[in-house]
């Protein structure tokens, strides 16, 4: 099993490994600031409940997506952050792909860097998982291809100037040169839908969450790299 970092150039590998030059670290630094700032009517910061992120958040991102007991549904890390904003901070949810949400998510996920991805499958998330696996293997779009056709059967091969990766999400949120920004795993997956000429599910859609869960299970054991750098 190979992380996406093994399919990129020397330049990008060096850029990801350089904690100063890695542009994703700007989002991590911003997330660290937001972590300490009070928000919403609750007037609480993330730190007010969770303390020092390096301690409280270590390993957390590696276990997402998971079923939130209160909400009784599958949530990814972004969703979990917005649940906190709603319940504890009484603040508006942060928009998908907003700089603030990406920064906080990158900061929280960064606390798990090096921790192996490990989601637990149980009765609560079994259906989500099965739907995710089914979608991963289902042909979609005008290209009539499934995720598996590229990322299980064709990884390592060239698609134009691109080397097809195994499609693991362990580096996300990641900085993509193509985006000139940090983006979420859902944004990356939506780009795959676009490439297949398939209708893109909206951010936060159940099918994207299902797919994220299946991908996390499939990437089990790979270390979290956030913030990764990709082409």
């Amino acid at each position: 099993m190979k992380s996406g970092i093994e399919f990129v150039s020397d330049d990008l590998r060096k850029l990801q490994a350089d904690d100063f030059a890695n542009p994703g670290m700007l989002w991590v630094a911003r997330g660290e600031k937001i972590w300490g700032e009070a928000a919403g009517n609750g007037g609480k910061s993330c730190a007010a409940c969770h303390g020092v992120a390096a301690k409280s958040m270590q390993g957390v991102a590696a276990r997402y997506p998971r079923v939130d007991p209160g909400a009784a549904r599958l949530v990814n890390l972004e969703g979990r952050i917005n649940l906190c904003r709603d319940r504890k901070q009484q603040a508006q949810p942060l928009g998908p792909e907003s700089d603030e949400l990406l920064a906080l998510t990158a900061y929280v996920a960064h606390q798990s860097r090096g921790v192996p991805v490990s989601v637990t499958l149980d009765m609560q998330n079994r259906k989500d998982f099965e739907r995710g696996r089914e979608l991963y293997n289902r042909r979609i779009g005008q290209m009539n291809l499934a995720c598996t056709h590229c990322h299980d059967r064709s990884w390592g091969k060239k698609l134009a100037a691109e080397t097809v990766s195994q499609g693991h999400g362990n580096a996300f949120p990641a900085y993509r040169l193509e985006w000139q920004s940090v983006g979420s795993l859902q944004r990356r997956i939506r780009a795959c839908f676009y490439g297949l000429r398939a209708e893109m599910p909206p951010y936060g859609a159940q099918e994207l969450l299902d797919l994220e869960l299946y991908l996390a299970w499939r990437a089990g054991g790979l270390p979290v790299e956030t913030p990764g750098v990709r082409r």
Partner: peptide, 9 residues
């Protein structure tokens, strides 16, 4: 001296 700035340029 190294600098990075968050800016979309």
């Amino acid at each position: 001296v190294r600098i990075t700035i968050q800016h979309s340029m």
